[in-house]
Design a protein around this nucleic acid. Structure first.
Length: 419
RNA sequence: GCGGCUCUGGUGAAGUGGUUAACACGUCGGAUUGUGGCUCCGAUAUGCGUGGGUUCGAUUCCCACGAGUCGCCCCA
């Protein structure tokens, strides 16, 4: 117990950290390119924010949140996603005051009490983007493009972009009613889970995997037939923007979002080889959320991508960057008198911006040389009684095995010249 | 929350109801005097996820729990 991290959490070890940093840098470069600024919101929020923002009745809220009461008797929840927090921050800090369209991105941990499996952890990391304050479908397209180009630029192939529209408060209820009627009539053809969904959220029946191949789904009412003019127009023009950008997309009428706040555009990017957890990025428009949380009626679009899943996909495809971590010099010392001298040398090198290490275990010189070789250092700097006496350092080039004796004061310069 | 599979050292793993739990990698030490990468030699699990039970005896059989993994569910 003491030596086990809680279930569903993972240490990111040094060799992994290299990949994470690389990915995060890519994200920051990309967002700069598109003009999105980074925001960092608290890891936890008032529970109420998620109840309102995500919606009671959703699985995330009903059974996946890490909720607890703090010592001040407040109900607190570890963020299961970041959109609600960003919107809260947008309102609290009145970010709408300066510019019309506020474009933000974030990278951070999210928490969901799920059963862990490949690509699904209880603490996981998302990168997400939110554009708040514009209803033009061009922004939907920009967001989708950003997500798409990002994954592509990492080197991922076999990606599928699916888009759909889920309507708005004017037309979705009509669609929902039709679905409910239809599925109630055909209840005998539905699986157990879907019977449950029929009560809670009939839209979700559409992306049921169990019933996927059945005629019931094929013959179900389609959203297009219910859309209001505004939603229809919005979706059509989104498609035009996407086409103009030259990216391929699939309109999938069964694509549904799990969170209540989505309106109009919904999209998902899948990387099939990941299996069950193939959704690598997903998002859409959420025109109702800002008002729901207490702001003015404000349109917005966004998406989130799972970093663990992206890393998994990259690993599968062998696209992770090569690991390179080497130091410039390794200090080897012989004898107690030389230890302090060696330490001074070590410090000197670092002050000259030369990465350096030494062995602190008082091992034999031979063993220290082994460490030097293993460290990948280009130079071994050998100091013993002789060097101390003459204020010099023996520099050995570990690649060529050539070595020479240099005055202590000239070591840094000498090494810099040869690196 | 439900179901399948798995669980041996730092790592990959072999293995058996009963003497010293293979092998490989890694790590550490050594092969004379202050010098590496190759080679050679030696050391390295009183222990087989945890706790019970069956048995004369269990790492090997049974049960529970835990963790991992895959699928359902959910989602990024």
């Amino acid at each position: 117990m003491l030596t086990n991290a809680p279930r569903g959490t993972k240490d990111i070890l040094p060799e992994q950290t290299i990949n994470w940093l690389w990915l995060e840098n890519k994200i920051r470069e990309l967002c700069a390119l598109y003009g999105y600024d980074e925001i960092r919101t608290p890891t936890f929020e008032h529970t109420e924010l998620f109840l309102r923002g995500i919606g009671e009745g959703t699985d995330v809220v009903d059974k996946e949140m890490y909720t607890f009461t703090d010592r001040g008797d407040r109900s607190i929840t570890l963020r299961p996603e970041n959109t609600a927090s960003v919107v809260r921050a947008y309102l609290q800090n009145k970010l709408y005051a300066n510019v019309g369209l506020v474009k933000l991105f974030y990278i951070g941990s999210m928490f969901r009490y799920d059963r862990p499996q490949a690509g699904r952890l209880r603490e996981f990391h998302q990168f997400g983007v939110e554009a708040i304050g514009e209803k033009n479908p061009a922004v939907d397209a920009e967001i989708i493009l950003l997500a798409w180009e990002f994954l592509r630029s990492l080197g991922l192939n076999d990606l599928t972009l699916k888009i759909n529209t889920v309507g708005c408060p004017a037309c979705r209820p009509i669609f929902r009613r039709k679905l409910t009627e239809y599925f109630t009539e055909n209840a005998e053809d539905l699986c157990e889970d879907c019977l449950r969904r029929l009560e809670k959220n009939p839209l979700r029946i559409l992306d049921c995997k169990v019933d996927a191949s059945k005629d019931v789904l094929d013959d179900a009412p389609r959203i297009e037939t219910c859309l209001c003019d505004d939603c229809r127009e919005h979706f059509n023009s989104l498609k035009k923007f996407l086409t103009s950008a030259g990216i391929e997309y699939v309109v999938d009428n069964r694509l549904v979002r799990g969170l209540d706040y989505y309106t109009k555009t919904a999209f998902e990017i899948q990387y099939a080889p990941l299996g069950a957890q193939s959704a690598v990025a997903g998002g859409g428009r959420y025109d109702g959320l800002i008002k729901e949380i207490g702001g003015d009626d404000t349109p917005a679009v966004g998406f989130a991508a799972g970093l663990e899943r992206i890393l998994l996909a990259l690993e599968l495809q062998g696209m992770l960057p090569a690991q390179t971590k080497k130091i410039d010099a390794f200090v080897v010392s012989g004898g107690a008198a030389a230890e302090v001298y060696a330490f001074k040398l070590l410090t000197d090198l670092r002050r000259q911006n030369i990465s350096a290490a030494m062995d602190f275990a008082k091992k034999s010189m031979k063993a220290q040389m082994k460490s030097a070789a293993k460290s990948g250092a280009k130079f071994a700097l050998i100091v013993g009684d002789d060097e101390v006496a003459s204020s010099t350092v023996t520099i050995k080039n570990l690649e060529t095995a050539a070595q020479e004796n240099v005055a202590f004061a000239e070591v840094s310069e000498k090494i810099c010249g040869e690196l």
